[in-house]
């Protein structure tokens, strides 16, 4: 229970960074932290106490994974989510470089002021 709550605290901190900070790189860091916390939350939900990884190894009884394995479904979804996160981060950094090229600053309030 407390693990879920700590993951949500991490989520809120990422969201705070996204909302309250003015530097664009800081905002990107906020998005990254939010994404980490959601991935962690999904994996925490699928954990089974004393569970093993859902992989049958050579010489292992076939029923052992079915009896003791952790939930594989969130793992499969989070695996795709991590790689998507990397692509989206690259997209955000690309936008960020364009903004720096145009306004010569990473500060949001400065960019708003320059736009008039």
């Amino acid at each position: 229970m407390i693990c879920y709550f700590l993951a949500l605290v991490l989520f809120v901190m990422g969201l705070y960074c996204l909302v309250a900070k003015k530097n664009i790189i800081k905002k990107i860091i906020g998005v990254t932290i939010t994404e980490y916390s959601i991935n962690l939350f999904l994996i925490l939900i699928g954990y089974r106490r004393g569970g093993i990884a859902p992989i049958t190894l050579r010489g292992m009884d076939p029923g052992e994974v079915a009896a003791k394995g952790v939930d594989p479904l969130p793992q499969a979804l989070v695996l795709t989510s991590i790689v998507i996160g990397l692509g989206v981060l690259a997209l955000m950094v690309a936008m960020c470089l364009r903004l720096y090229e145009k306004y010569k600053t990473f500060d949001m309030s400065e960019i708003n002021r320059l736009r008039g």
Binding site: V83, L86, G87, A90, V93, A94, L97, R98, E101
Partner: peptide, 24 residues
């Protein structure tokens, strides 16, 4: 797919990015 696209992203960020700043 993942290899090619991530390497392409790295090239785009490093080469095009520097190209942008040199143009500036």
């Amino acid at each position: 797919k993942v290899t090619a696209s991530l390497f392409a992203i790295f090239l785009a960020l490093s080469i095009f990015g520097r190209f942008i700043s040199s143009l500036v």
